[in-house]
Computed example of a mutant assay.
Amino acid sequence: MHPSLAQVHDRIELQKSALPQMYGDVDFTQTPERYTQDVAESSLPPSLHNMAPPPADMVARVKAYTMLGDVTADAYAALMGEYGFRRLVDMLTTACDEGLEAVPDAPPELVALITEMETRPDWLDMDMVRKGAALNRLPMAVTSPWMIRGAFLATFMNKYTALPMAITGTLGYSTSARRVNETATFFTVTTLPGALEPRGEGFKAAAMVRLMHSMVRFNILRKMKSWDVSVYGIPVPQVDQMPAGLIDVFLLAYQMLDEGRTEFTADERARV
Rank of each mutant, 00 (worst) to 15 (best):
V142F: 09
V142L: 09
T143Y: 09
T143A: 04
T143R: 08
T143N: 04
P145L: 00
P145S: 00
P145R: 02
W146K: 04
W146N: 03
M147Q: 13
M147L: 09
I148G: 03
R149P: 07
G150C: 00
G150A: 05
A151L: 15
L153G: 15
A154P: 15
T155A: 12
T155D: 11
T155V: 15
T155C: 08
F156E: 13
F156K: 08
M157P: 14
M157V: 07
N158H: 13
K159W: 07
Y160K: 05
Y160S: 12
T161Q: 07
T161V: 02
T161R: 02
T161F: 02
T161K: 02
T161M: 01
A162H: 07
A162Q: 13
L163V: 04
L163E: 14
L163H: 12
L163N: 11
L163D: 13
L163G: 07
P164G: 04
M165G: 07
A166E: 15
I167D: 11
I167F: 01
G169R: 11
G169H: 08
G169L: 03
G169Y: 12
T170C: 08
L171P: 10
G172P: 14
G172W: 08
Y173H: 10
S174L: 09
S174N: 11
S174V: 04
T175P: 12
T175W: 02
T175D: 14
S176P: 13
A177K: 12
A177N: 13
A177C: 08
R178Q: 12
R178G: 07
R179C: 08
R179D: 10
R179M: 02
R179H: 08
R179G: 14
V180E: 02
N181M: 05
N181C: 01
E182K: 15
E182Y: 01
E182R: 09
T183A: 05
T183L: 06
A184Q: 11
A184T: 13
A184N: 11
A184R: 06
A184M: 08
T185Q: 06
F186N: 05
F186R: 10
F186H: 14
F187S: 00
F187P: 00
F187L: 06
T188L: 10
T188G: 01
V189R: 03
V189Y: 11
T190L: 04
T190P: 05
T190K: 04
T190M: 05
L192N: 05
L192R: 10
P193Y: 01
P193F: 03
G194D: 00
G194N: 01
A195Q: 02
A195K: 01
A195I: 00
E197D: 14
